[in-house]
Amino acid sequence: MAVLRKSPPADALTSSAGTGRPPLPARLRRDWQLLAMTIPAVGLLVVFHYVPTLGNVIAFQDYSPYDGITGSPWVGLYNFQWLLSDPEFWTALRNTVTITAFQLVFYFPIPIMLAILLDSVLSRRLRLFIQGIVYMPHFFSWVLVVALFQQILGGAGLLAQTLRQAGHEPWNVMTDPDAFIVLVTAQSVWKDAGWGTIIFLAALAAINTNLYEAAAVDGASRWRRLWHITLPGLRPVILLLLILRLGDALNVGFEQFFLQRDAVGAEAAEVLDTFVYWRTLMTGAWSYGAAAGLFKGLVGLILIVVANKVAHRFGEQGIYKRS
């Protein structure tokens, strides 16, 4: 978590921020072991990230995999013009942004609350037991999660059959377009909220316990301690994850929506990933798909930069800072 460190280390030799910066050959001589250690990681990044990223140029081509990038004709912004005039794309974008915004409010805080609750459980064995249970659904596939929700909330599920036996008209939550956004958020919470606590639990462990003791001695109540010690201690991590989440704003996942698309209709369930899937992968419009992907990446980049700037305004480190 070096990026979170507030002040630069005191040692002037290791600081690049100082004015007395040694010349490049001297720095190379001094740091070569450190640089050598980064080579495998950089190599992985180059091979599996930067080189494939170059493939995005097909967004400006009429690309066919059988002609390759060198053989396909260039078409400029043609694919982007089509994309922005495509009503299906706008439906997908609208749904994606709505779902992201909803989940920022109703999903994002849940792992934080859960982590604080877990942290306050004193019995170690009980805590590990609860952690084991809430982590587990993260490893289930979406098909399994959807099937499980179906068994409980579906029209032939537990809820509906109980209602039927009591003589009421059953409500099939799974096929109600108005309930869809709540349903997918509930599924995400069930599947991933436990897993999301890990990073917060680590941050909680890093808070100095002396602070709590001192506050308790001063007569601070449980809520006061939460408000003045726990939450400020978590703030850098919360902001870091929030900014990263914003960068991912246009990715809400594929499988969960793909599986339930017909249940509530494209009007409510089409998101960018499902749009790209049927509109481009299934019709051979590879360039069109790459254009949609670039659009997503661009929006993500803008959101990250803006959010990071805002974080700096509030005196926070954010995810990066120019030194």
Partner: peptide
């Protein structure tokens, strides 16, 4: 309500972009 919720009116204006001449991208 969804649009109001997010204030996505701006996106809708962009959506009025016209399509270029020529076939839609595809095989």
């Amino acid at each position: 309500t969804r649009r109001g919720f997010l204030g996505l009116a701006g996106l809708t204006v962009l959506a009025a972009c016209s399509a270029p001449p020529g076939p839609k991208p595809g095989a």
